[in-house]
Amino acid sequence: MTTAMNVPPTIDVTGTARIPFARLFRVELRKSADTRAGRWLIGVTAGLSLLAEVIFLIVAANHTPQDVPAKFGDFVAVSAFISSVLLPVLGIMLVTSEWSQRTAMTTFALEPKRMRIILAKMLAGTALTLFVVVFALFVGLVCNALLGVLRTGGADWTFGWSGFFGFLITQTLAMLGGFALACLLLNTPAAIVVFFAYKWVLPVLFFWGSSLMNWFDRLSPWLNFQAAQGPLYEMPLSGKEWGQLLVSGFVWLVVPLAIGLWRIRRAEVK
C-alpha cells in the first residue's frame, strides 16, 4: 500500500507494439479449424467434392458413344457446385460463431480495433477458399487422368486459365456472399437461410419477373449477381458484362457488407 503512492497511475506502452496483422490472420485461420464444427465443415466440403467427382468419373467412364465425352472442365464444374454451397456456410460461420459462442467479447477485448479482426477473418476465409479450390482441381485432375486411362481416346483436358480463374473468383465471391450476410445479420441460422433464399429462390423470382415484365427483363441482368458471374468462366468479359458484374456485386455484396461492418463497429458486444 505504501508502494502504491509512489507508482504513477499510468501504464508504459512505449515498449508494446500493436498486434501485427499477420498474427491476427494466423489466429483467425486457426480458430476456423480448432473446433469439431470447423474441422467437419472444411472436411465435409473437401470430402463431398471428392465423392461427387468420383461418382462423376464412374458415370463418365461408362458413357455410351452417343454421349458428349467428359472433359477436365466438367470435373471442375461438379466440384464447383458442391463448394459453392458449403463455402458460403464457412464464410458465415467465421463471423457468426463469435456471436453465438460469445467469444467476440474476448476477441474484441484483445484487439479493440474490430475492423482488423473482420479483415483478418475475411482473408482467412479467402485462404480456405483457395485451399478448397486447389483441392478440387487436384481431385479433378486425378479423376480426369483416370478417365483417360479407362476410356479409349484418352482424356480431354479442355479447361484453360479462364476456367481456373472463373472457378477461383466465383468460389471466393460465394464465400464472401455468406460472409457479408453474416456481418449483416450476426446470427448463424438467419444468415444461412437468407443466403440460400438468395441463392436458390431469388433466381426463380428474377426469371418470373423478367418473363412477366418487360422493364424488369432489361433491369434484371444488372441485379442478378449470380447470372452476372457466369461469364467469368469465359474470359475476357465485355464492358457490359463487367458493368453488370460490378453493379449486381455492389448490391448483393458491398451493400450488405458495408452495413454489416458499420453494425459490428458500433455493436455492443454481449
Binding site: T16, R18, Q101, T106, A109
Partner: peptide, 18 residues
C-alpha cells in the same frame, strides 16, 4: 492501448467461451 492483453487482464463472463 496497443496489444491491450499485455496491460489489462479482462474476465467479463467465464461462460463466454467456445
Amino acid at each position: 492501448i496497443p496489444n491491450p492483453g499485455r496491460h489489462v487482464g479482462v474476465l467479463l463472463d467465464a461462460s463466454a467461451q467456445h
